[in-house]
Design a protein around this nucleic acid. Structure first.
Lengths: 251, 251
DNA sequence: TTCGATTTGTTCGTATGTATT
DNA sequence: TAATACATACGAACAAATCGA
Protein backbone atom coordinates (compact mmCIF):
# COMPACT_ATOMS: atom_id res chain seq x y z
CA UNK A 1 0.00 0.00 0.00
CA UNK A 2 1.34 3.40 -0.97
CA UNK A 3 2.43 5.39 2.08
CA UNK A 4 0.86 8.44 0.53
CA UNK A 5 -1.08 10.31 3.20
CA UNK A 6 1.60 12.00 5.23
CA UNK A 7 0.18 15.45 5.85
CA UNK A 8 3.56 17.12 5.62
CA UNK A 9 5.67 17.20 8.73
CA UNK A 10 3.24 15.25 10.85
CA UNK A 11 3.95 11.69 11.78
CA UNK A 12 2.96 9.36 8.99
CA UNK A 13 -0.33 7.49 9.30
CA UNK A 14 0.36 3.96 10.52
CA UNK A 15 -0.01 1.27 7.92
CA UNK A 16 -2.71 -0.56 9.83
CA UNK A 17 -4.84 2.58 9.84
CA UNK A 18 -4.52 2.96 6.09
CA UNK A 19 -5.60 -0.64 5.73
CA UNK A 20 -8.52 0.03 8.07
CA UNK A 21 -9.54 2.97 5.91
CA UNK A 22 -9.30 0.87 2.80
CA UNK A 23 -11.51 -1.83 4.30
CA UNK A 24 -14.02 0.75 5.52
CA UNK A 25 -14.18 2.34 2.09
CA UNK A 26 -14.78 -1.04 0.48
CA UNK A 27 -17.52 -1.70 3.02
CA UNK A 28 -19.15 1.67 2.34
CA UNK A 29 -18.97 1.00 -1.39
CA UNK A 30 -20.83 -2.25 -0.86
CA UNK A 31 -17.93 -4.32 -2.11
CA UNK A 32 -18.67 -6.91 0.56
CA UNK A 33 -22.31 -7.24 1.64
CA UNK A 34 -23.57 -7.79 5.18
CA UNK A 35 -23.36 -11.45 6.11
CA UNK A 36 -20.70 -12.12 3.52
CA UNK A 37 -17.13 -13.00 4.34
CA UNK A 38 -14.42 -10.54 3.50
CA UNK A 39 -11.21 -11.94 1.99
CA UNK A 40 -9.02 -13.98 4.29
CA UNK A 41 -6.25 -12.31 6.22
CA UNK A 42 -3.64 -13.87 3.98
CA UNK A 43 -5.42 -12.56 0.89
CA UNK A 44 -5.82 -9.07 2.29
CA UNK A 45 -2.17 -9.09 3.31
CA UNK A 46 -1.16 -9.97 -0.24
CA UNK A 47 -3.53 -7.39 -1.77
CA UNK A 48 -2.32 -4.61 0.50
CA UNK A 49 1.30 -5.67 0.46
CA UNK A 50 1.55 -5.81 4.23
CA UNK A 51 2.06 -8.55 6.77
CA UNK A 52 -0.79 -10.56 8.26
CA UNK A 53 -0.11 -8.97 11.63
CA UNK A 54 -0.89 -5.55 10.19
CA UNK A 55 -4.14 -6.85 8.69
CA UNK A 56 -5.15 -8.30 12.03
CA UNK A 57 -4.43 -5.02 13.73
CA UNK A 58 -6.64 -3.17 11.23
CA UNK A 59 -9.47 -5.68 11.54
CA UNK A 60 -9.21 -5.67 15.35
CA UNK A 61 -10.63 -2.17 15.59
CA UNK A 62 -13.42 -2.86 13.13
CA UNK A 63 -14.35 -5.92 15.16
CA UNK A 64 -14.29 -3.82 18.34
CA UNK A 65 -16.60 -1.37 16.58
CA UNK A 66 -18.89 -4.28 15.74
CA UNK A 67 -18.58 -3.61 12.03
CA UNK A 68 -16.95 -6.96 11.35
CA UNK A 69 -17.27 -10.30 13.11
CA UNK A 70 -14.50 -12.89 13.22
CA UNK A 71 -15.11 -16.62 13.38
CA UNK A 72 -12.24 -18.96 13.88
CA UNK A 73 -11.97 -21.54 11.14
CA UNK A 74 -14.58 -19.80 8.97
CA UNK A 75 -13.56 -16.28 8.16
CA UNK A 76 -14.34 -12.63 8.90
CA UNK A 77 -17.85 -11.41 8.13
CA UNK A 78 -19.68 -8.13 7.69
CA UNK A 79 -21.96 -7.73 10.73
CA UNK A 80 -25.68 -8.21 10.19
CA UNK A 81 -28.67 -6.94 12.14
CA UNK A 82 -29.75 -10.07 13.93
CA UNK A 83 -32.21 -9.95 16.82
CA UNK A 84 -29.42 -10.60 19.28
CA UNK A 85 -27.29 -7.75 18.05
CA UNK A 86 -30.26 -5.37 17.99
CA UNK A 87 -31.28 -6.28 21.51
CA UNK A 88 -27.81 -5.60 22.76
CA UNK A 89 -26.65 -2.58 20.86
CA UNK A 90 -29.69 -0.79 19.47
CA UNK A 91 -32.57 -1.51 21.82
CA UNK A 92 -31.92 -0.28 25.33
CA UNK A 93 -35.28 -0.87 26.99
CA UNK A 94 -35.67 -3.44 29.73
CA UNK A 95 -38.33 -4.27 32.30
CA UNK A 96 -37.91 -2.80 35.77
CA UNK A 97 -37.94 -6.39 36.93
CA UNK A 98 -34.80 -6.93 34.85
CA UNK A 99 -36.49 -8.74 31.97
CA UNK A 100 -34.93 -8.22 28.58
CA UNK A 101 -37.04 -9.28 25.63
CA UNK A 102 -37.33 -8.58 21.95
CA UNK A 103 -40.24 -6.25 21.11
CA UNK A 104 -43.13 -6.85 18.77
CA UNK A 105 -43.37 -4.20 16.08
CA UNK A 106 -46.50 -2.60 14.63
CA UNK A 107 -46.51 -0.11 11.77
CA UNK A 108 -48.92 2.74 12.54
CA UNK A 109 -48.24 5.18 9.75
CA UNK A 110 -46.24 5.92 6.62
CA UNK A 111 -46.00 8.95 4.36
CA UNK A 112 -43.54 10.83 2.21
CA UNK A 113 -42.94 14.54 2.38
CA UNK A 114 -40.31 17.24 2.64
CA UNK A 115 -38.31 17.86 5.79
CA UNK A 116 -39.26 20.96 7.76
CA UNK A 117 -37.91 23.38 10.33
CA UNK A 118 -38.43 20.84 13.11
CA UNK A 119 -36.06 18.39 11.45
CA UNK A 120 -33.52 21.11 10.93
CA UNK A 121 -33.77 22.20 14.56
CA UNK A 122 -33.81 18.72 16.09
CA UNK A 123 -31.31 16.96 13.88
CA UNK A 124 -29.56 19.52 11.70
CA UNK A 125 -31.24 17.99 8.67
CA UNK A 126 -31.51 20.49 5.83
CA UNK A 127 -35.04 21.78 5.10
CA UNK A 128 -36.76 20.60 1.97
CA UNK A 129 -35.09 17.21 1.82
CA UNK A 130 -37.26 14.35 0.58
CA UNK A 131 -38.01 12.13 3.54
CA UNK A 132 -40.22 9.24 4.55
CA UNK A 133 -42.04 9.46 7.87
CA UNK A 134 -42.72 6.22 9.65
CA UNK A 135 -44.65 5.78 12.86
CA UNK A 136 -43.87 2.47 14.51
CA UNK A 137 -45.06 1.04 17.82
CA UNK A 138 -43.05 -1.42 19.88
CA UNK A 139 -44.80 -3.70 22.33
CA UNK A 140 -43.33 -5.68 25.17
CA UNK A 141 -45.41 -8.43 26.67
CA UNK A 142 -48.18 -7.35 24.24
CA UNK A 143 -48.36 -3.91 25.88
CA UNK A 144 -47.36 -0.71 24.06
CA UNK A 145 -44.13 0.73 25.48
CA UNK A 146 -42.20 2.60 22.79
CA UNK A 147 -43.50 4.82 20.00
CA UNK A 148 -41.00 5.67 17.28
CA UNK A 149 -41.46 8.54 14.85
CA UNK A 150 -38.86 7.87 12.22
CA UNK A 151 -37.58 10.28 9.60
CA UNK A 152 -35.41 8.90 6.87
CA UNK A 153 -34.09 10.82 3.85
CA UNK A 154 -35.10 8.79 0.81
CA UNK A 155 -31.96 9.60 -1.12
CA UNK A 156 -30.19 6.41 -0.11
CA UNK A 157 -33.40 4.37 -0.13
CA UNK A 158 -34.67 3.86 -3.65
CA UNK A 159 -38.40 3.11 -3.93
CA UNK A 160 -38.99 2.98 -0.19
CA UNK A 161 -42.70 2.42 0.37
CA UNK A 162 -45.21 1.40 2.98
CA UNK A 163 -45.69 -2.18 1.82
CA UNK A 164 -41.95 -2.78 1.99
CA UNK A 165 -41.99 -1.57 5.54
CA UNK A 166 -45.11 -3.47 6.50
CA UNK A 167 -44.13 -6.79 5.01
CA UNK A 168 -40.59 -6.77 6.33
CA UNK A 169 -39.27 -9.55 8.51
CA UNK A 170 -36.97 -8.64 11.33
CA UNK A 171 -35.92 -5.20 12.48
CA UNK A 172 -36.04 -1.93 10.59
CA UNK A 173 -32.27 -1.77 10.44
CA UNK A 174 -32.21 -5.28 9.03
CA UNK A 175 -34.55 -4.00 6.32
CA UNK A 176 -32.26 -1.09 5.52
CA UNK A 177 -29.41 -3.53 5.36
CA UNK A 178 -30.94 -6.32 3.32
CA UNK A 179 -32.97 -4.22 0.91
CA UNK A 180 -31.04 -0.98 0.50
CA UNK A 181 -27.49 -1.93 1.43
CA UNK A 182 -27.48 0.72 4.13
CA UNK A 183 -25.76 -0.62 7.22
CA UNK A 184 -26.43 1.13 10.52
CA UNK A 185 -23.37 0.61 12.70
CA UNK A 186 -23.81 3.15 15.49
CA UNK A 187 -26.47 5.31 17.11
CA UNK A 188 -26.32 8.45 19.21
CA UNK A 189 -29.16 9.23 21.59
CA UNK A 190 -30.17 12.24 23.67
CA UNK A 191 -32.70 11.62 26.44
CA UNK A 192 -35.03 13.89 28.35
CA UNK A 193 -38.19 13.63 30.41
CA UNK A 194 -41.37 15.31 29.18
CA UNK A 195 -45.12 15.04 29.03
CA UNK A 196 -46.14 13.20 25.88
CA UNK A 197 -48.30 14.82 23.18
CA UNK A 198 -51.95 13.74 23.32
CA UNK A 199 -51.80 11.36 20.35
CA UNK A 200 -48.67 9.67 21.68
CA UNK A 201 -50.11 9.36 25.18
CA UNK A 202 -53.22 7.74 23.77
CA UNK A 203 -51.19 5.15 21.90
CA UNK A 204 -49.01 4.36 24.90
CA UNK A 205 -51.98 4.16 27.24
CA UNK A 206 -50.82 7.12 29.28
CA UNK A 207 -52.36 10.37 30.42
CA UNK A 208 -50.82 13.54 29.02
CA UNK A 209 -49.86 14.69 32.50
CA UNK A 210 -47.77 11.61 33.13
CA UNK A 211 -44.00 11.79 32.58
CA UNK A 212 -42.52 9.93 29.63
CA UNK A 213 -39.01 9.39 28.40
CA UNK A 214 -38.24 11.18 25.15
CA UNK A 215 -35.29 10.25 22.94
CA UNK A 216 -33.78 11.91 19.90
CA UNK A 217 -31.76 9.34 18.00
CA UNK A 218 -29.46 9.63 15.02
CA UNK A 219 -28.37 6.41 13.33
CA UNK A 220 -25.04 6.35 11.51
CA UNK A 221 -23.56 4.14 8.84
CA UNK A 222 -19.88 3.75 7.95
CA UNK A 223 -17.72 6.84 8.32
CA UNK A 224 -20.23 8.40 10.70
CA UNK A 225 -22.61 9.35 7.91
CA UNK A 226 -26.14 9.82 9.32
CA UNK A 227 -28.88 7.77 7.68
CA UNK A 228 -31.93 7.96 9.92
CA UNK A 229 -33.48 10.24 12.53
CA UNK A 230 -35.91 9.25 15.26
CA UNK A 231 -38.08 10.65 18.01
CA UNK A 232 -39.03 8.00 20.55
CA UNK A 233 -41.53 8.20 23.38
CA UNK A 234 -41.32 5.62 26.12
CA UNK A 235 -43.74 4.74 28.88
CA UNK A 236 -41.42 4.09 31.81
CA UNK A 237 -44.12 2.90 34.19
CA UNK A 238 -42.77 -0.65 34.02
CA UNK A 239 -39.66 -0.25 31.87
CA UNK A 240 -36.31 1.50 31.96
CA UNK A 241 -33.60 2.67 29.60
CA UNK A 242 -30.26 0.92 30.08
CA UNK A 243 -27.02 2.81 29.62
CA UNK A 244 -23.48 1.45 29.67
CA UNK A 245 -24.17 -2.20 29.09
CA UNK A 246 -20.48 -2.04 28.50
CA UNK A 247 -18.46 -4.66 30.27
CA UNK A 248 -15.85 -3.91 27.63
CA UNK A 249 -14.64 -7.48 27.79
CA UNK A 250 -11.93 -6.07 30.03
CA UNK A 251 -12.24 -8.09 33.17
CA UNK B 1 3.24 -18.19 34.34
CA UNK B 2 1.76 -21.49 35.41
CA UNK B 3 -0.81 -22.73 32.92
CA UNK B 4 -3.01 -23.83 35.78
CA UNK B 5 -6.59 -22.94 34.98
CA UNK B 6 -7.58 -25.42 32.34
CA UNK B 7 -11.03 -26.52 33.47
CA UNK B 8 -10.54 -30.04 32.16
CA UNK B 9 -11.39 -30.67 28.55
CA UNK B 10 -12.13 -27.06 27.66
CA UNK B 11 -9.70 -25.04 25.63
CA UNK B 12 -6.95 -23.69 27.85
CA UNK B 13 -7.12 -20.05 28.95
CA UNK B 14 -4.87 -18.01 26.68
CA UNK B 15 -1.66 -16.80 28.25
CA UNK B 16 -2.49 -13.15 27.65
CA UNK B 17 -5.69 -13.54 29.62
CA UNK B 18 -3.88 -15.03 32.57
CA UNK B 19 -1.48 -12.09 32.46
CA UNK B 20 -4.48 -9.75 32.28
CA UNK B 21 -5.93 -11.41 35.35
CA UNK B 22 -2.65 -11.10 37.18
CA UNK B 23 -2.40 -7.39 36.40
CA UNK B 24 -6.03 -6.82 37.43
CA UNK B 25 -5.46 -8.61 40.73
CA UNK B 26 -2.39 -6.49 41.41
CA UNK B 27 -4.43 -3.38 40.62
CA UNK B 28 -7.25 -4.46 42.94
CA UNK B 29 -4.70 -5.18 45.67
CA UNK B 30 -3.42 -1.63 45.34
CA UNK B 31 0.02 -2.80 44.27
CA UNK B 32 0.20 0.09 41.81
CA UNK B 33 -1.71 3.24 42.75
CA UNK B 34 -3.72 5.46 40.39
CA UNK B 35 -1.45 7.86 38.56
CA UNK B 36 1.56 5.64 39.06
CA UNK B 37 3.34 3.78 36.30
CA UNK B 38 3.13 0.03 36.21
CA UNK B 39 6.34 -1.87 35.37
CA UNK B 40 7.58 -1.60 31.80
CA UNK B 41 6.51 -4.16 29.26
CA UNK B 42 9.97 -5.70 29.27
CA UNK B 43 9.87 -6.05 33.04
CA UNK B 44 6.40 -7.57 33.07
CA UNK B 45 7.45 -9.95 30.33
CA UNK B 46 10.40 -11.10 32.42
CA UNK B 47 8.31 -11.38 35.59
CA UNK B 48 5.58 -13.39 33.91
CA UNK B 49 7.94 -15.41 31.75
CA UNK B 50 6.16 -14.48 28.54
CA UNK B 51 7.04 -12.46 25.47
CA UNK B 52 6.50 -8.72 25.21
CA UNK B 53 3.84 -9.32 22.58
CA UNK B 54 1.76 -11.27 25.08
CA UNK B 55 2.11 -8.47 27.64
CA UNK B 56 1.00 -5.93 25.06
CA UNK B 57 -2.03 -8.04 24.22
CA UNK B 58 -3.01 -8.24 27.90
CA UNK B 59 -2.52 -4.52 28.46
CA UNK B 60 -4.42 -3.69 25.24
CA UNK B 61 -7.73 -4.78 26.73
CA UNK B 62 -7.13 -2.96 29.99
CA UNK B 63 -6.37 0.18 28.02
CA UNK B 64 -9.55 -0.31 26.00
CA UNK B 65 -11.43 -0.62 29.28
CA UNK B 66 -9.84 2.65 30.38
CA UNK B 67 -8.24 1.01 33.38
CA UNK B 68 -4.72 1.73 32.18
CA UNK B 69 -3.34 4.52 30.02
CA UNK B 70 -0.31 4.15 27.78
CA UNK B 71 2.06 6.98 26.94
CA UNK B 72 4.75 6.47 24.39
CA UNK B 73 8.19 7.11 25.79
CA UNK B 74 6.95 7.37 29.38
CA UNK B 75 5.23 4.19 30.43
CA UNK B 76 1.84 2.71 31.25
CA UNK B 77 -0.16 4.32 34.05
CA UNK B 78 -3.13 3.49 36.24
CA UNK B 79 -6.00 5.72 35.09
CA UNK B 80 -7.00 8.62 37.34
CA UNK B 81 -10.26 10.53 37.69
CA UNK B 82 -9.39 13.76 35.96
CA UNK B 83 -12.08 16.25 34.97
CA UNK B 84 -11.72 15.28 31.35
CA UNK B 85 -12.22 11.61 31.99
CA UNK B 86 -15.19 12.27 34.26
CA UNK B 87 -16.86 14.52 31.73
CA UNK B 88 -16.52 11.91 29.07
CA UNK B 89 -17.21 8.65 30.80
CA UNK B 90 -19.10 9.36 34.01
CA UNK B 91 -21.07 12.56 33.44
CA UNK B 92 -23.55 12.26 30.61
CA UNK B 93 -25.45 15.54 30.92
CA UNK B 94 -25.20 18.20 28.23
CA UNK B 95 -27.11 21.35 27.37
CA UNK B 96 -29.83 21.07 24.76
CA UNK B 97 -27.84 23.67 22.88
CA UNK B 98 -25.01 21.15 22.74
CA UNK B 99 -22.88 22.74 25.46
CA UNK B 100 -20.79 20.35 27.48
CA UNK B 101 -19.35 21.76 30.67
CA UNK B 102 -18.03 20.52 33.97
CA UNK B 103 -20.54 20.96 36.82
CA UNK B 104 -20.11 22.82 40.09
CA UNK B 105 -20.72 20.60 43.09
CA UNK B 106 -22.47 21.48 46.34
CA UNK B 107 -22.76 19.15 49.33
CA UNK B 108 -26.30 19.31 50.76
CA UNK B 109 -26.30 16.52 53.30
CA UNK B 110 -24.32 13.75 54.94
CA UNK B 111 -25.22 11.09 57.45
CA UNK B 112 -24.37 7.52 58.37
CA UNK B 113 -26.90 4.79 58.93
CA UNK B 114 -27.85 1.23 58.05
CA UNK B 115 -29.13 0.25 54.62
CA UNK B 116 -32.84 -0.47 54.38
CA UNK B 117 -35.39 -2.28 52.25
CA UNK B 118 -35.25 0.45 49.63
CA UNK B 119 -31.55 -0.19 49.01
CA UNK B 120 -32.17 -3.90 48.81
CA UNK B 121 -35.00 -3.43 46.33
CA UNK B 122 -33.29 -0.78 44.18
CA UNK B 123 -29.77 -2.11 44.15
CA UNK B 124 -29.71 -5.57 45.66
CA UNK B 125 -27.71 -4.20 48.57
CA UNK B 126 -28.14 -6.34 51.68
CA UNK B 127 -30.22 -4.79 54.48
CA UNK B 128 -28.44 -3.62 57.59
CA UNK B 129 -25.16 -2.76 55.91
CA UNK B 130 -23.35 0.29 57.30
CA UNK B 131 -23.64 3.03 54.71
CA UNK B 132 -23.02 6.73 54.30
CA UNK B 133 -25.72 8.82 52.65
CA UNK B 134 -24.60 11.83 50.71
CA UNK B 135 -26.83 14.38 49.04
CA UNK B 136 -24.96 16.33 46.40
CA UNK B 137 -26.18 18.99 44.00
CA UNK B 138 -24.62 19.63 40.60
CA UNK B 139 -25.03 23.01 38.95
CA UNK B 140 -24.45 23.92 35.34
CA UNK B 141 -24.11 27.60 34.54
CA UNK B 142 -24.83 28.27 38.23
CA UNK B 143 -28.28 26.69 37.94
CA UNK B 144 -29.24 23.46 39.74
CA UNK B 145 -29.64 20.58 37.27
CA UNK B 146 -28.74 17.27 38.90
CA UNK B 147 -29.43 16.08 42.43
CA UNK B 148 -27.51 12.98 43.52
CA UNK B 149 -28.52 10.86 46.49
CA UNK B 150 -25.50 8.67 47.05
CA UNK B 151 -25.32 5.51 49.12
CA UNK B 152 -21.92 4.05 49.79
CA UNK B 153 -21.14 1.08 52.02
CA UNK B 154 -18.49 2.27 54.46
CA UNK B 155 -16.70 -1.05 54.56
CA UNK B 156 -14.15 -0.08 51.94
CA UNK B 157 -14.06 3.54 53.12
CA UNK B 158 -12.35 3.85 56.47
CA UNK B 159 -13.24 6.98 58.46
CA UNK B 160 -15.40 8.50 55.74
CA UNK B 161 -16.90 11.71 57.12
CA UNK B 162 -18.62 14.89 56.08
CA UNK B 163 -15.62 17.18 56.29
CA UNK B 164 -13.65 14.87 54.01
CA UNK B 165 -16.43 15.09 51.50
CA UNK B 166 -16.92 18.82 51.89
CA UNK B 167 -13.26 19.80 51.66
CA UNK B 168 -12.46 17.57 48.73
CA UNK B 169 -11.01 18.94 45.53
CA UNK B 170 -12.17 17.43 42.29
CA UNK B 171 -14.85 14.83 41.74
CA UNK B 172 -16.28 12.35 44.20
CA UNK B 173 -14.70 9.45 42.36
CA UNK B 174 -11.35 11.23 42.52
CA UNK B 175 -11.85 11.39 46.29
CA UNK B 176 -12.57 7.68 46.51
CA UNK B 177 -9.48 7.08 44.46
CA UNK B 178 -7.02 9.40 46.15
CA UNK B 179 -8.15 8.92 49.74
CA UNK B 180 -9.46 5.38 49.91
CA UNK B 181 -7.73 3.64 47.05
CA UNK B 182 -11.09 2.69 45.57
CA UNK B 183 -11.00 3.10 41.81
CA UNK B 184 -14.32 3.38 39.96
CA UNK B 185 -13.78 2.08 36.46
CA UNK B 186 -17.30 1.55 35.14
CA UNK B 187 -20.89 2.56 35.84
CA UNK B 188 -24.23 1.05 34.91
CA UNK B 189 -27.30 3.29 34.73
CA UNK B 190 -31.04 2.68 34.41
CA UNK B 191 -33.15 5.66 33.37
CA UNK B 192 -36.83 6.45 33.69
CA UNK B 193 -39.10 9.48 33.65
CA UNK B 194 -41.03 10.40 36.77
CA UNK B 195 -42.39 13.25 38.84
CA UNK B 196 -39.81 14.32 41.40
CA UNK B 197 -40.48 14.16 45.15
CA UNK B 198 -41.33 17.52 46.69
CA UNK B 199 -37.95 18.09 48.34
CA UNK B 200 -36.10 17.23 45.15
CA UNK B 201 -38.35 19.43 43.04
CA UNK B 202 -37.75 22.34 45.38
CA UNK B 203 -33.99 21.97 45.10
CA UNK B 204 -34.08 21.69 41.31
CA UNK B 205 -36.46 24.62 40.95
CA UNK B 206 -39.20 22.45 39.51
CA UNK B 207 -42.84 21.84 40.31
CA UNK B 208 -43.76 18.36 41.46
CA UNK B 209 -46.02 17.86 38.48
CA UNK B 210 -43.21 18.45 36.02
CA UNK B 211 -41.43 15.45 34.50
CA UNK B 212 -37.86 14.77 35.58
CA UNK B 213 -35.30 12.19 34.56
CA UNK B 214 -34.53 9.63 37.22
CA UNK B 215 -31.41 7.47 37.20
CA UNK B 216 -30.33 4.48 39.25
CA UNK B 217 -26.59 4.14 39.02
CA UNK B 218 -24.23 1.48 40.27
CA UNK B 219 -20.51 2.24 40.17
CA UNK B 220 -18.05 -0.64 39.85
CA UNK B 221 -14.38 -1.05 40.60
CA UNK B 222 -12.04 -3.75 39.28
CA UNK B 223 -13.55 -7.17 38.67
CA UNK B 224 -17.04 -5.68 38.52
CA UNK B 225 -17.28 -5.27 42.26
CA UNK B 226 -19.91 -2.62 43.14
CA UNK B 227 -18.70 0.23 45.35
CA UNK B 228 -21.35 2.94 45.21
CA UNK B 229 -25.08 3.33 44.56
CA UNK B 230 -26.85 6.45 43.40
CA UNK B 231 -30.27 7.91 42.72
CA UNK B 232 -30.11 10.96 40.48
CA UNK B 233 -32.84 13.41 39.58
CA UNK B 234 -32.32 15.62 36.58
CA UNK B 235 -34.21 18.68 35.41
CA UNK B 236 -34.28 18.20 31.66
CA UNK B 237 -35.84 21.57 30.87
CA UNK B 238 -32.58 22.76 29.33
CA UNK B 239 -30.38 19.67 29.51
CA UNK B 240 -30.27 16.15 28.13
CA UNK B 241 -28.71 12.81 28.90
CA UNK B 242 -26.25 11.61 26.26
CA UNK B 243 -25.97 7.94 25.42
CA UNK B 244 -23.47 6.24 23.13
CA UNK B 245 -20.84 8.92 22.96
CA UNK B 246 -19.06 5.95 21.55
CA UNK B 247 -17.19 6.62 18.35
CA UNK B 248 -15.24 3.49 19.29
CA UNK B 249 -12.21 4.90 17.54
CA UNK B 250 -13.25 2.61 14.70
CA UNK B 251 -13.63 5.01 11.80
C1' DT C 1 21.88 21.81 23.71
C1' DT C 2 23.10 17.41 22.80
C1' DC C 3 23.14 12.71 23.67
C1' DG C 4 21.98 8.38 25.32
C1' DA C 5 18.98 5.37 27.89
C1' DT C 6 14.34 3.95 28.49
C1' DT C 7 9.70 2.99 27.01
C1' DT C 8 5.96 2.49 24.07
C1' DG C 9 4.47 2.21 18.88
C1' DT C 10 4.74 -0.08 14.42
C1' DT C 11 5.93 -3.70 11.28
C1' DC C 12 7.71 -7.78 9.86
C1' DG C 13 8.34 -12.81 10.11
C1' DT C 14 7.62 -17.61 11.85
C1' DA C 15 5.66 -21.44 14.21
C1' DT C 16 1.98 -23.84 16.20
C1' DG C 17 -2.83 -24.60 17.85
C1' DT C 18 -7.83 -24.87 17.07
C1' DA C 19 -12.16 -24.64 14.52
C1' DT C 20 -14.57 -25.31 10.24
C1' DT C 21 -15.61 -27.40 5.98
C1' DT D 1 -8.35 -36.62 6.16
C1' DA D 2 -6.78 -32.54 4.19
C1' DA D 3 -7.16 -27.78 3.27
C1' DT D 4 -8.43 -23.34 4.91
C1' DA D 5 -8.89 -19.57 8.22
C1' DC D 6 -8.54 -17.47 12.42
C1' DA D 7 -6.04 -17.58 17.34
C1' DT D 8 -2.05 -17.58 20.06
C1' DA D 9 2.75 -16.91 21.04
C1' DC D 10 7.44 -15.80 20.23
C1' DG D 11 11.15 -12.94 18.46
C1' DA D 12 13.46 -9.16 16.06
C1' DA D 13 14.18 -4.63 14.26
C1' DC D 14 13.43 0.06 13.98
C1' DA D 15 10.69 4.47 14.89
C1' DA D 16 9.08 7.98 17.99
C1' DA D 17 8.49 10.16 22.46
C1' DT D 18 10.35 11.19 26.94
C1' DC D 19 13.66 12.29 30.33
C1' DG D 20 17.79 13.08 32.68
C1' DA D 21 22.86 13.51 32.47
Amino acid sequence: MAASDTPSGLTPTPLYREVQWRITRALAAGEWKPGEAIPSEAELAADCGVSIGTIRRAVDELVAGRILVRQQGRGTFVATHTEDRTLFYFFHIAGKDGSREFPESELLGFRKERSNDGDEHDFGLARGTRVARVRNLLKLGSRPVVLDDITVPTERFARLDESTFRSREGTIYALYQARYGVNVVRIGERLSAAHPPADVAAILGMRTNQPALHIRRIAYSYNDSPVEYRHSWINTADHEYLSDLWKTAAL
